[in-house]
Amino acid sequence: MQPWFREDALKFLRGLKRNNNREWFEARRAVYERELKLPMLALIERIMQGMEEYAPEHIRPAAKCMLRIYRDTRFSADKSPYKHHVAAWWTRSGLEKTSGGGYYLHIGHDELVIAAGVYMPQKEQLLAIRRHLLENHLEWKRLIEDKKLRRFMDLHDPMALTRPPKGFPADHPAISWICWRQWGVIAHLPAAEALKPALAANVTKYLRLTAPIVNFLNEPLTAALQKKKKPLFGLYAPVRTRMHSDDEHEL
């Protein structure tokens, strides 16, 4: 299967937006599988070949990267069952359950979206990233203001607080970034880009540019994971030492 899409894929998504109901979708499920799901899985696989160089910790089975087309309507007033796009999210190994920093791609009927960063992090992750910014704000400034990155990608909506979060100094050089509630960059391209055989190579150019900021944002999150694991080893180390000492005493 080719790792790009045909016009029929965009036609399906336009139709789905107008007819967002189970009857319409099920009558055309074969079209969805052929024109969207299979090419998307092939595209994910091709993109991950490049990730071996700049994001090896984000490589996973393609089926686990591709997001469901079904919407979660439990807490939404909009009960339409389907998204109007197909999408993929590459999370970092070890952060699958909490997301962390990753790479995002979606193909809709009207645009192709490429993004990277941390979106809507959990409370612990939010605090960890803010503390990381306190100590490493000069590095973050260099990464997020990189001219080449910003030539191709815009800042994603940071959902910034109107005042500093509790416990953080208002006069700190990084306070504007610390006030953010999510950190990322995004690019919106014409949907026609998804129809080109060079799609995977073009997406890779964008994602490769974002790798430094994704790595920066994941640093405190992966460090927290390691700290959680250490007590497990520490729990057994004294026991082994004590047993060794007792054995020597008996001898």
Rank of each mutant, 00 (worst) to 15 (best):
T98F: 01
A62T: 07
M48K: 05
T91N: 08
T98S: 15
N20S: 11
L36W: 01
E45S: 09
E111F: 01
W89G: 01
E52A: 11
M66S: 08
H106K: 05
Y70D: 13
T98L: 02
L95A: 04
G15I: 05
G94E: 04
R18M: 09
M51Y: 04
H84T: 10
M51G: 07
E57R: 13
R46T: 12
G94Y: 01
L67K: 12
M40V: 06
M48C: 15
V31T: 14
P61L: 04
F75S: 03
S93Y: 12
L43T: 09
A42C: 11
P61R: 14
L95F: 05
G100F: 03
L13Q: 00
L95V: 10
M48W: 00
Y104Q: 02
E111G: 05
R18H: 10
H85Q: 11
Q49C: 08
I69L: 13
I47G: 02
G15T: 07
A77W: 13
I69G: 13
N20M: 14
H85M: 04
K64H: 10
K64W: 07
E57L: 14
Y54A: 07
T98W: 00
H109N: 07
I59L: 07
G102M: 06
G100D: 00
E26T: 15
R14Q: 11
A62W: 02
P39N: 09
G50D: 09
N19A: 13
W24L: 13
A63C: 07
F25A: 13
H58T: 00
Y103A: 05
M51I: 04
E57H: 10
A42L: 03
L13E: 00
R28Y: 09
L95Q: 02
Q49H: 08
L105T: 01
G102H: 02
Y54S: 02
I107L: 13
K17S: 05
W90T: 01
D72M: 14
G101W: 07
E45G: 10
R22A: 15
Q49D: 15
A55M: 07
R71T: 03
E45M: 08
W89L: 12
H84C: 05
Y103R: 01
K64R: 14
D72N: 11
V31Y: 00
K64T: 14
A63R: 09
L95G: 01
A42T: 10
G50S: 12
K97T: 12
I69H: 09
A77D: 11
G94Q: 02
P39H: 05
K64Q: 14
D72P: 06
I44S: 00
A88G: 12
Q49S: 06
A55T: 02
A42K: 10
R60H: 15
K64V: 03
I69T: 09
H58V: 00
R28C: 05
L41M: 11
A87Q: 04
R14K: 14
F75K: 03
Y104R: 04
I59T: 10
R71N: 03
P39Q: 04
K79R: 15
W24K: 11
R46S: 11
F12Q: 08
W24T: 15
I44Q: 00
E53W: 06
H84W: 10
P39Y: 03
L13H: 00
E96Y: 03
E96V: 11
W90M: 06
G108R: 05
P81I: 12
Y103T: 03
A27N: 14
R28L: 12
D72L: 15
K64D: 13
L67S: 08
R28V: 08
A88R: 01
R60W: 07
R28H: 12
